[in-house]
Design a binder for these strands. Structure first.
Lengths: 207, 207, 207, 207
DNA sequence: GATGAATGAGAATTCATTCAT
DNA sequence: GATGAATGAATTCTCATTCAT
């Protein structure tokens, strides 16, 4: 949604601007982000900013586009896995990818976390969520049930939700700690629980 | 931390003010909340506001107190459960309580979600988190392992984290949808997964 | 100008109020003085304050009255000096009295210094100055000229002004330093200069 | 400390702003000065003001700079005097300069008088005083003593203080009267007193 | 196309004064 | 006569946006 003028800018300038926006929008939420800081860091004039973007919202959207592009690339790789792999393998693979991504682009990740929590009308209208991801795992689960890997009694949608929950919760934790290591390891342990359950098969009386 | 003046106000006025504060602080984060909106909705003058509260932070703290009080009551009930009950029973009980609470006071919950994400120094200093809850479940889990209800091989801390994750994630979901029904039901299904696992014990070849 | 209500107050209460006013008006200028602080220190209610005094100006005037009374007493003593004494003796006597007064009531002195510099319309209208003092010394000087103590060529008004200048300047200095000792000593040295001059009678070529 | 933006303003605009600031800061003390009044008089918007100056303190400092500049020029001329001249000649010369300055820029002088009395932390930190002036005269006095112009028995520091007192006091007087004429004339008479003393050398009996 | 000065609504907070109880 | 809650205009300062050059 940025203007023609913006797209015709030199790559280096566009990158400078993009970096400034990402720095700001990853540091604070949309509503609190300051155009002042962005133009100072990007070393462009106030007037130029408004010749590139209609307004604050517009520049934010442009930045989201950038992030989305990289995400797309991430998920391409997720898909590129042994077709025989179970949903858990896929999930682990995704977590691995996310971990790599977060280490590589911690700010992109922060941006989406902020977006998740900004309640301003504008941000709410954006569906920043990865809309396909839920469905993607759902299919894998159904397939695994068919293949006999997962119990027939399992509700595929529910398992998909659980996986998503785990994912989100982990991200949230790491967002707060600002320390992105150990995600894969922890995820693996959690998956073990989900796969095998925690109840003692010998404990008769309870539950 | 509110002033004497505030506490001596008529109940109806205090409630009007409290409602206005909750409306505002549940709608946006602390930093973005507008005293202007609060006093307009509460129909008090700017001067009165500052006779009730030292500043924005003070009024926020007063509101938290209110929320905390109701939470306390909630957890009283959680504790009052059959001592023989498993951690899962306790967890379900808590979820039930939360569901009731969220239906009754959906905005209270929103406030804490915002607090979770406000990075301002002031909010960061507040430990709005329920600090004991994690530990509480941890003890129950350890006990259940001792009692043979839960597998010895289970890492208590991890299971505790998972339960917490589920909890947070569910809340987050419902926070976004602003639709708090079905939490208990869904939780029950999820617990079933965690208890028994989803792997097909007969499915040899995979995983 | 205070109200009847005020004057009918118990002495102890009036004193409490007066002390609070003096503390405040000696600490900062009239415009910056805070009624809040006064009523807090005096332990009276806001409403009472406005039942005692019409407004801030009114309470200030009441306080000035108090100070004026003590000043009057001071000058009574100044007059009570050997009628043969020169204007310089009188001056020294006054400075001694002032020094005593300032040590005893440093705040009274600060009040007048603040008044001297407050340019608000209200304060300007007040002639806090000791209107008679200038004239008083003028008479003494004229007398000393007649008596042959002071040169005939001396302009009495001018000498009076000089004495006043010295006085004010010293007070100003001590006000800033907030250290009231040594005034008398310094004054004595200065008077020596004024009495005898500083020019070397043998220095022919210059001046 | 003003911003680049300010310095790049057209002269006429800068003068309009400077005049408004001087009007306000000469009318009341720093703490009481109102940015509102300044921007209204200068006919600039609130936003502009804060694009020129960081805050109230900053604009005040900018104004002081202006005053300092003119003072500098004043003292250049004071120094440019016959090296044989006595301290009294220098003093008179300075007073003459001050009189000219005060007639030309009466408000500048008022500003410094206010600064002298503002007890706010910010103003206190500024040493608006002419720190070298006292010392400057002290050196001249010592020199005049050496040269035999001034009595050896004279305490140089004391005489310097007296000259300063006279200066301040005169300024203070004229500040209050807002009438700056006759300063030089009066000073000359006062100096005569200080030079020659007022005591009648023939008056034996007294003092 | 680029610049950056100008704008003004909105933010939090203070304080002398009024008035119902 | 005493109380203290209520008021609102005033304060300083911020920031997204516009517009003349």
């Amino acid at each position: 949604m940025a203007t023609e003028t913006y797209y015709q800018l030199s790559s280096s300038k566009k990158e400078r601007i993009m970096e400034a926006m990402i720095d700001e929008f990853s540091a604070v939420s949309f509503s609190l982000a300051s155009i002042n800081k962005i133009i100072k860091q990007a070393k462009i004039s106030r007037g130029s900013f408004y010749q590139y973007f209609k307004d604050k919202e517009d520049c934010y959207l442009e930045m989201l586009k950038q992030i989305a592009q990289e995400k797309m690339e991430l998920f391409k790789d997720v898909v590129a896995l042994d077709p025989e792999a179970s949903v858990f393998d896929h999930y682990m693979h995704m977590i691995n990818q996310i971990e790599i991504w977060m280490l590589k682009r911690p700010k992109y990740f922060k941006v989406s976390m902020h977006a998740d929590f900004d309640k301003s009308d504008f941000i709410q209208k954006l569906s920043v969520d990865q809309p396909d991801l839920g469905n993607y795992f759902l299919q894998l689960i159904k397939n695994d049930i068919k293949r006999g890997i997962i119990k027939e009694s399992t509700d595929p949608q529910l398992l998909s939700d659980v996986l998503n929950s785990i994912n989100k919760s982990l991200l949230l934790d790491y967002f707060k700690k600002e320390d992105y290591l150990g995600m894969s390891l922890k995820t693996e342990s959690i998956l073990a629980i989900i796969k095998n359950g925690v109840l003692n098969p010998l404990g008769e009386k309870h539950v």
